[in-house]
Write a protein that binds this DNA or RNA. Sequence first.
DNA 1: ACTTGACGACTACCATGGTAGTGTGCCATC
DNA 2: GATGGCACACTACCATGGTAGTCGTCAAGT
Lengths: 239, 239
Amino acid sequence: MAIQNQSVGGRPQPLAKQVFDELHRQILTFELKPFQMLSEATVSDMLGISRTPVREALALLAAESFVDVMPQRGSRVAPLRVANLERSQFMREALEVALLRRAMAAGRHEELAHGLRREVLLQQTFAAVGDKDRFYESDEAFHGLIADAAGFAEILPEILRVKDHMDRFRHLMVSGVDDLGIVIREHGDICEAVARGDAAGAEALLVAHLRRILQYVDEARARFPEYFESDADARKAVR
Amino acid sequence: MAIQNQSVGGRPQPLAKQVFDELHRQILTFELKPFQMLSEATVSDMLGISRTPVREALALLAAESFVDVMPQRGSRVAPLRVANLERSQFMREALEVALLRRAMAAGRHEELAHGLRREVLLQQTFAAVGDKDRFYESDEAFHGLIADAAGFAEILPEILRVKDHMDRFRHLMVSGVDDLGIVIREHGDICEAVARGDAAGAEALLVAHLRRILQYVDEARARFPEYFESDADARKAVR
DNA sequence: ACTTGACGACTACCATGGTAGTGTGCCATC
DNA sequence: GATGGCACACTACCATGGTAGTCGTCAAGT
């Protein structure tokens, strides 16, 4: 896993942060599967480091509900919880809609539309060559442009944090949720509404765009029931 | 400080959580002042425990921007940052407005208005007898009722978390921000708008209510400049 | 057959020692 | 008197040992 001696900007990253980032990534991509045990000892053995930074990373992951820490019983990758997804979706929608309104009220919609269109063009290219990673980067940039236009770029990290639970869910459904053609069309429609200064229309399109993921919940539960929390699990997880 | 052997529901609380809660409380109430050093060693000595749970608590506080951890240099109570306050305010407003819209769209505004009125009556009583703690409890309940009516009670903890930075700021200005008469009147106005089904009006009143705190930023900076971050501090805090 | 309870193998939790990195003040040098 | 370098104090960071709590197993007892 190569956890040792990673550095950023010449300065070595603390191990705890490296472990957090790596576990976070693996949980979101299902390299670590829901319910998989993550005891301090096993993780620290895997990574070849001591238990202390692992423990710290697990505590931080637990604070974001990606890990369940069960005192004296063990820690595990948190199962998917529909409630988490709905909360994440609601918060993201509320925040992004508020940003869009503010951006439109600021009255620079041509400028915003210009930037958005540029990003959509990039997305078409990335989709054409099948570069999903860059596509998602551009997707985040698309939404980030709205935050910029609203004059609230500082909020972007918070939105990304909120978005994590949705991203994790998205990784389950490699097709469907990720139909790049649909995403591009939705982005394009939002662009047009923004360009013609149609605040209400843009907002409605954005909401529809963000809510689309919820349509896949039932299918995901049917295809991967073992990844979702059951009532029995909920009982066992209480402290 | 009495950190040992606290328990909840018969089960002893982990020390790390006790430390987190206690430091969190003291930071929000300014018992711990901005820029005050909080090295692992000094805190653990104060509390009579070892450094490990203290370290864990500091890491969690740092994740919420209440503590600045400066590698190899020390940790300190984070100064007040206007950017934090504005972000907190923006997020809270976006979330609560979205909840109110949803609640009003659900079409049970009489029921909601009834609950809100009841809470306002309690607030008048608590204000009359000067019980600020219960007043703030009721204030949180007031906003919680809106979340309930929107069918999204699960979001309440997130809102409270977001609210923390505003609460900390509020503790600076014991009068003014906390003019209970004004708060009660604003709550009452919101009630009335909700009662007559005036969604737009209620929303505008709610926004005004939530934004009022921003009016005190300049005054706070003038009265307590030593609590706010200066440019020099920002430079020193980078990692 | 079913319950009970002791034992052992785990666990998270906490204490403590050691290490490398950073800032500060003293002191020699200019 | 100003300045550069060096030792020291202090820090966050990590490793490791010990402890109490929880679960599963299996034998003894009913």
